[in-house]
């Protein structure tokens, strides 16, 4: 079952990181679609984001390579560099001993931007709670529906003329949609 070339061997032993990144991404995606609570949706969003970061960092790994900081013998200010009279470019073999720094750089900024956007999303959900008194999606939809009905009554007290009917169409559409999903 796990011999060379078998698909399970490829997935579970040599590409486990990639498999787990898919699993985490799906957990995040499912939470964003199906969870009812807005905070749960945001946690799902963060799980989704870290799954992408895991994928990028897994790409940058090299077997038997060290972290992307120069060892003492390649350090531009170390004794070796002074003895040679300045830093030298690394040969192809030496390059292979360092992990790939490019994915690390891309993801480092993504993490910090991620927490800033998480804060923004939390601020929006706080505002929703202040306005509607709930952060559950189904209750929110009911309240929004009621508010729509109230404003419609205030704006168009007589709903007979065909002009008004056409204007109201998008609102009516949404009401029918939410009604269906509740059944």
């Amino acid at each position: 079952m796990f011999e060379d070339g078998a698909i399970l061997n490829e997935l579970f032993l040599e590409r486990l990181n990639y498999l787990i990144y898919v699993v985490l991404l799906l957990i995040g995606l499912y939470a964003m679609i199906a969870k009812n609570n807005l905070i749960k949706k945001l946690i799902g969003m963060s799980v989704f984001q870290t799954a992408i970061i895991l994928f990028y960092v897994s790409i940058g790994v090299k077997e038997d390579a060290t972290i992307p900081i120069y060892l003492p013998e390649h350090d531009p200010h170390g004794e070796h560099a002074h003895a040679r009279g300045g830093p030298e470019a690394l040969s192809r073999g030496q390059v292979a001993t360092y992990a790939n720094p490019l994915p690390h750089v891309l993801m480092l900024t993504a993490i910090v931007v991620g927490v800033a956007t998480l804060g923004l999303a939390l601020a929006v959900s706080l505002r929703i709670y202040q306005g509607y008194g709930t952060i559950e999606e189904d209750e929110l939809l009911v309240k929004l529906e009621r508010e729509d009905a109230r404003t419609r009554k205030a704006e168009f007290p007589v709903a007979d003329s065909p002009k008004v009917e056409s204007k109201r169409k998008p609102v009516a559409k949404r009401v029918s949609k939410t009604g269906k999903s509740k059944k």
């Binding site: 870290t50 970061i53 960092v57 897994s58 940058g60 790994v61 390579a65 060290t66 972290i67 992307p68 900081i69 992990a99 994915p103 690390h104 750089v105 993801m107 480092l108 993490i111 910090v112 991620g114 927490v115």
Partner: peptide, 15 residues
Amino acid sequence: EMGAVDVAFTEAAVG
């Protein structure tokens, strides 16, 4: 563990 020390440091502080 994967050698991305800067990313790990940022995640420890931020995440």
